[in-house]
Simulated scan of single mutants.
Amino acid sequence: MVRLSREDIEKSLPTGWRVEGNYLVRDLEFKTFMDCIAFINELARLAESEEHHPDMLIVWKHLTLRLTTHDEGGITELDIKMANLINGLIEKWKDRLA
């Protein structure tokens, strides 16, 4: 997998995501703590099936996701693909988002 240029990242940046250094980042706010945890459980199954795992920071009902390809030292097509898959999951959970 090849690390993407900043220009290539900007062209393919999935909705709701931003670039911070070598990471794609997305913040989510859920209606309840348990909604956040249930979402994470479903995301964990997706990440395991894709063999690409986001960093996750949970603060009560707030979830921050970060994606990077550690072996390449930055953002690759794998991260773009995973961000798009996560967006599909977010769409499914939109009624539980604050």
Rank of each mutant, 00 (worst) to 15 (best):
E51H: 07
L89E: 02
L28F: 05
I80T: 04
D71I: 13
G74W: 08
A44M: 03
A47S: 13
G73V: 13
L43K: 03
L46P: 05
G74Q: 10
L13R: 10
P14W: 02
T32S: 13
S12K: 15
E10G: 08
T69W: 06
K11M: 08
K92S: 01
I40Q: 03
M34A: 15
E10N: 12
L43Q: 04
S12Y: 10
G21E: 10
A44H: 01
R96M: 06
S5R: 10
A83N: 05
K81E: 11
C36N: 13
H70P: 08
E91C: 07
D71E: 15
L89G: 01
E29R: 12
D71Y: 12
D55A: 14
K11Q: 12
E10V: 09
K92L: 02
L43I: 00
H70Y: 15
R26M: 03
D55W: 11
D79L: 10
H52N: 04
R26L: 05
R45E: 14
S5F: 09
G73T: 13
L4N: 07
C36T: 12
H53C: 01
M34F: 11
G73A: 10
R3Q: 15
N41V: 03
G21W: 08
A47F: 00
E29Q: 14
E51Y: 08
T69C: 11
V59I: 13
G21M: 06
R6N: 13
G16Q: 06
I90T: 04
D27Q: 15
G88Q: 02
N22M: 14
T76D: 06
L89M: 07
L89V: 02
D8W: 11
K11W: 06
R96E: 05
T64W: 05
Y23N: 14
L65N: 04
A83P: 10
I37L: 11
F33P: 07
F33S: 08
W60D: 12
K81V: 09
E29K: 15
I40P: 02
G74M: 06
I58C: 06
L78H: 13
L78S: 14
T68D: 11
T76H: 11
A47H: 05
H53Q: 01
W17Q: 08
W17V: 07
Y23L: 13
W17A: 08
L24Q: 02
G88F: 00
R96L: 00
L43N: 03
D8S: 12
K11F: 05
M56L: 14
A83I: 07
D35I: 07
L78D: 12
T32P: 02
E91N: 10
I9P: 09
R3G: 11
E7K: 14
G88I: 00
E29Y: 12
N41P: 01
R3F: 07
L67W: 04
S49E: 15
R26V: 04
M82E: 05
M34D: 15
N22S: 15
A83C: 09
P54G: 03
T68K: 14
W93H: 02
E10D: 11
G74I: 09
H52M: 06
I86Q: 01
E51G: 12
I80Y: 04
L67H: 07
L85Y: 05
R96Y: 09
E7G: 03
L28V: 03
E77W: 15
W17P: 08
F39N: 00
L63F: 03
E51M: 13
I86T: 02
K92V: 00
K81M: 09
L28D: 02
E48S: 12
N41D: 07
